[in-house]
Each structure stands twice: as structure tokens, then as C-alpha cells.
Amino acid sequence: MLLQLSDVDISYNDNVIVKGVNLELDSGERLSIVGESGSGKTTVIRAILGVLPRAGKVTNGKIIYDGKNILEFTPKEWKKVRGKEISMIFQDSGNMMNPVQKIGDQFIEYITTQEDTDKKSAYEKAVKMLSLTNLPNPENVMNSYTFELSGGMRQRVGIAMAITFEPKLLLADEPTSALDVTTQAQIVKELMKITKSSMIIVTHNIGVAAALGDKLMVMQGGKVVEYGKTTEVIENPKAEYTKTLLSAVPEIGGKRYA
């Protein structure tokens, strides 16, 4: 087992927000998390990466990664793991990047801070990663600023960075919700093809969750209300909330609003 959360509670300013989360993830396994807005999805995956906002705190339970409780990690242990063994794709990778520094310089800096290597091999590695995500003309992308790339291209840069060190665990918070559906399909298929990492994908798009996840977890009000094999949860939902959610998924040609 790569990751195990048992009875995890998380609070912001002493208010318990996430309660009693349990989950297990094997090597190479992919889990999708869907659920109510504000139910704690982002909070859970931030806790796994140890990057909760200052007001946030894990107040109960264990997060065991590769046999060790990450809640007891020293800064030195985090330095070894974060960004390398466990990495994260943010909703808008473009916002996380520096607008006045070229993509290439940022990518090279990211590689050289994680790994003892020279600039030239870092450059080559970055180009290789960019081409893996199907970005055309990666040298040109390296030489661009974020605003010169479309949302989909920026998001692929974010994905390329996140998988550079072949993380054992990839966390993705709404990786495709800012993208049009053709780019989304491209990225979903690329993610499945190019990495063997375990993944946790948070998304509001249940179709994407179903396409990516072996397992599906449904959250509501800080609690896990359903958790199981994706096909089983979708074909045979047990929790009322899961049923509500599934029935609200819009489908082309479905019931009109107006």
C-alpha cells in the first residue's frame, strides 16, 4: 500500500471541517474524489501534501505514506518528498507560475532545486517532459511567457512539471476544469498514458472522474459518504447524496432549464 488515511480529521481555526476520512491507495492505483462544493476535497489533498493553509490542522488520525506517518515528517523529510515523490497539479497551473519569467527558466529552476544537476541537462529534461505531454514545439514553449500560451498549453506545462520526477503519488485538484473539452480529453488520455504514478484526482466533472479513477470517493459536508470501485458506485450508488449528484449531471439532449 502506498497511501493510507485512517480516521483523519482536519480543522480550520479549531472548527472541525473534515471528519473521519479513510482511504487506501495502492501503487499505480487512481482515485477520483467528487462531492459537494465546500465539503473538504481540496483540504484533504492539501493535507496529504502537507500544505494546508496556516489556519488548517490535522487534528486526528494518521496519513501513512510509504510506511511512514507524514504528520510526523521533519522539514528535511518533506524536502525529499514534496515535489519529487508526491507532486501536485493545481487547477490553474498558469496562476502558479511567474508571469515575468520565461517558462524555460522556471522549469529549469524547478529541476535544479530538486536535483543536483547542471542547467544543460535540466533544460534537456524539461524539453523531454514537455514533448511527453504532446506539446508541439517544446523549445518554443520553453522560450515563452505564460501569457503567450493558451490555458490548455499552460496546464500541460503544469502537468509536465508535476510528473518530471515520476512521482509515486500525483495529486490533482480540478486539473481540467479550466479547459475546453477537446483539451480536457487530450490531457485525460495523456495522463493515463504517460504516467504510472498513483493518482488522486479531485474534480466536479463526474465523467472525467469515471474515466480516470479506478476508485471513486464521494464527499459531502466534510465526510466520505461513499467509496468504492468507480463502476460500482456509478451503476449502483448507495448514498442518497451520490444519487442526487449523479442525477444532476447534465447530458446533451437532456432536460432543458429554459
Binding site: 467528487v34 462531492g35 459537494e36 462544493s37 465539503s39 487547477q91 480540478e174 476544469s177 479550466a178 466536479h204 463526474i206 442526487t244 449528484l245 444532476a248 449531471v249 447534465p250
Partner: peptide, 10 residues
């Protein structure tokens, strides 16, 4: 509405 769950979105 892209950051909303489908039920709140509805």
C-alpha cells in the same frame, strides 16, 4: 459555474 458540484450548479 465550473468550480461547483453538479448539484449546486443545478
Amino acid at each position: 459555474t465550473s468550480a461547483l458540484d453538479v448539484s449546486v450548479q443545478d
